[in-house]
Amino acid sequence: MSAPVETEDETGTPDGTPQQELRSYLWGYGLSLLLTLPVFGAVAWDWLPRAALWWAIGAAAVAQVAVQFRFFLHIRLKGQAKEDLQLVLFTALILAMMGGGTIWILHNLDGRMGGP
């Protein structure tokens, strides 16, 4: 394709210096640990009531997935090729329909059979 010029990375900003990129990876690693450790602690030592715990686990998981996409897989909301983000979002939509539908239908059937 084109000659090696001032390349931009997918954020639309010039490729970071090695230090900046290293810092980005370390941030990602730090954040993912931050989202992991407390949840494990909360489950191990029952810090929260059960329902609250489930919500916390879910929220941490969603945040964690976002961190992984942002810092390691380099999928961002702005400035990059649109089809990648579209692809990920479309997959999320399909997953929500298929997974959510499956759980809904099977749960519904279970209920009408008087449970297992």
Partner: peptide
Amino acid sequence: TGRHPGLN
């Protein structure tokens, strides 16, 4: 959209 996703 000439740039691939992920690592560059």
